[in-house]
Design a protein around this nucleic acid. Structure first.
Lengths: 267, 267
DNA sequence: TTGGATATTATTGTTCAACAATAACGGTGG
DNA sequence: CCACCGTTATTGTTGAACAATAATATCCAA
């Protein structure tokens, strides 16, 4: 059966329905690397080929996100369109599209005619982010259903953080700690809230990247996460939420102090 | 005083400091209209000239946002790059950059190789949005300081909504009602939360646009806003928050019913 | 007629080259 | 030290071109 297509106001068309299924045959096109950074450039292409229907622009965005959390790009850095485009093997236009997404997430800051810069979190940003974390996480924990699937994610995050601490892999400890909090937010069962929280995390991570001493930033909280989880699983959600709030306030003080010392305005 | 520029890893440069101020002389370039939609095209250009350093791409995004809230673009519509670009007088590349921002806000949905569509809010989205509204607004109201400047915005929104109701301008009633709720969120004094809520509002507005009968969607809530405000100003924040929660739940039921009737899957 | 495979077409994805516009830089002269 | 011009590198934007793909139309056989 076929449905008809109804045109409307100029510049737009209204899709009513669609026809039958279609074939999916794909023949990967050849791609020639030129000079320098060939590995990364091929990675981009391959990822885009394997990724199910994802546009190259989005793949580039993911790659830049990775460079950010890996600390290869540090706050304050200017991202030159031509140079970064060359490095990633994409054109300026494609890169600019990726920049727009990243700017919307707050990871980079777009200053017209001046360029795109890795966002330097301000003291006000940190305070704002921590206020929101208390706002969101505590409420999510308090209202949670103890049997929620995300509880399992909380448990896994704590275990993995502990394992990473044994290996003294402080970066991984930070990652798993953050996963613990993301799981708390997931208790609220809101897709939009999860997305929002992911942005907050990414921005917070930027602030961490400037701190000289990641061990003290992450290690102490493994046990605190464990305690929150234990109390929560015991069924005393109010106590768990209260503890979480104290915990977040303490974390905030630590981060603010470290920021003032290492990652301040003189990045 | 001049600071030096320090280069780092390939593809990026690190800006340490900057030189002196610079002149701002601007000579507006000529721009030739060709055929059709000349008014809109010139509007874009003029706005971009007047706007302080805003890139044309962002101006285009704002324009599309306007078309969306004005109902000129309805959910489900496909936005052709060439046609819409022609209509707005911008190139495809510029338009695509604007699309990326809009997609990130959830206003449009990007389906690779298929095009950009005005987002059709699902039932699940509406439920999610309303849950978040209760989550955010009630807490913001409960924790608010009664002397907060946003209280004045709440009052103004109620007054303007009432005035618009007299004129039977239901679209404006909806706008001011939403401004009332945005003001409530502003009580929390969080820049990020405000941005997030703005997105939720925009998405909700999309859902409204498909509803046939805007009067019943907006008119009843003018008085409820008034009551919430009165109780809040009287100092009983808990009662105000409780009333707001009931109010939001009722609104949700109304919207869901209207959605199921008018704006359902058969858009 | 039905169903499935193949060709066609319109659109998106991406690159490239070119130019306009601008901010930063360097110098000059007071 | 400051204000006033050129220079220059970068971003902003365009248009054309081509590749890649989804949707459509065509065809052929059962």
């Amino acid at each position: 059966m076929y449905w008809t297509l109804v045109a409307s106001s100029p510049g737009v068309t209204l899709e009513i329905g669609r026809g039958r299924a279609c074939r999916m045959g794909v023949e990967p096109g050849t791609w020639s690397a030129r000079e320098g950074h060939e590995r990364e450039r091929q990675d981009m292409k391959r990822q885009s080929e394997e990724g199910a229907g994802k546009a190259l622009g989005e793949t580039v965005g993911d790659e830049i996100r990775r460079l950010l959390v890996d600390g290869e790009l540090v706050p304050g850095q200017r991202l030159s369109e031509s140079a970064l485009g060359e490095r990633l093997g994409v054109s300026r236009n494609t890169l600019r599209e990726a920049f727009r997404s990243l700017a919307h997430e707050g990871l980079v800051t777009h200053r017209p005619h001046r360029g795109v810069f890795v966002t330097t979190p301000s003291l006000a940003s940190l305070i704002d982010i921590y206020r929101l974390r208390r706002f969101i996480e505590c409420r999510a924990l308090r209202d949670a259903w103890p049997g929620h699937p995300a509880v399992r994610r909380m448990r896994e995050a704590v275990d993995q953080a502990r394992a990473s601490r044994e290996r003294e892999d402080w970066g991984a400890v930070g990652t798993h700690n953050m996963a613990f909090h993301a799981a708390i937010v997931a208790l609220a069962d809101s897709e939009r809230l999860d997305t929002f929280y992911r942005q907050l995390s990414a921005e917070l991570r930027l602030a961490f990247s400037g701190v000289a001493d990641p061990q003290w930033l992450h290690a102490p909280y493994v046990e605190m996460n464990q305690r929150v989880l234990t109390i929560f699983e015991a069924g005393d959600v109010d106590a768990a939420a209260t503890l979480l709030e104290q915990y977040l306030s303490q974390s905030e003080r630590t981060v603010l102090a470290a920021y003032a010392r290492d990652g301040g305005p003189d990045a």
